[in-house]
Amino acid sequence: MRTPEKDQALKISDVTFSNIHGTGSGDHAIVLDCAKIGCDNITLQDIKITSVDPKKPSSAICNNVKGKSNNVSPALPCLH
């Protein structure tokens, strides 16, 4: 029996990802997917992930995330 999301959610805050460089083969190079209660104060800095397929640009997605980014590629629409 599956428990509803609200019973499984964990609020994440004050996390920094930095100095990450590499290649990705999936649909998205960066995925930040937080529960509806959200993630706060998430920082990404000096990150560059490219696609292994030069014809396909890297992309990123994020849901329910607040924070900031600096020198990150691909850019995340939820972080400024």
Rank of each mutant, 00 (worst) to 15 (best):
C39L: 02
T43I: 15
G24A: 09
L79I: 04
V65L: 01
I42F: 07
K55Q: 14
A9P: 03
L76M: 15
K48Q: 11
P77C: 01
P54S: 06
K68G: 02
I20Q: 05
N63T: 13
H21L: 06
H21Q: 11
E5N: 08
G38V: 02
Q45N: 15
N71I: 09
Q45F: 07
D40F: 12
A29F: 07
K55T: 12
N70E: 12
A35K: 00
F17W: 08
L76R: 06
S25Q: 13
H28G: 00
T23Q: 13
K56V: 14
S69C: 03
V72H: 08
N19A: 12
V72K: 09
N19C: 02
D14M: 07
H21N: 06
V15G: 09
C78H: 12
A9C: 11
P77Y: 04
S25F: 02
D46N: 15
T3L: 12
A60D: 06
G24D: 09
L76Q: 12
C62S: 12
N70R: 08
S58Y: 05
S58Q: 09
I49P: 02
G67Q: 04
E5F: 07
N41C: 04
N71R: 05
L79G: 01
P77E: 12
K56G: 01
Q8P: 00
A29W: 05
S18E: 14
T50Y: 01
T16R: 10
S13Q: 14
A9S: 14
D7R: 07
A60R: 06
K48H: 11
V31Y: 03
I47C: 07
K48M: 07
F17Y: 13
G22I: 03
L79Q: 01
D7H: 11
N19V: 04
D46T: 08
N41F: 08
A9G: 07
D33N: 15
K68R: 13
S51H: 02
S59D: 10
A35R: 05
I47Y: 09
L44A: 03
V72Y: 06
I47Q: 08
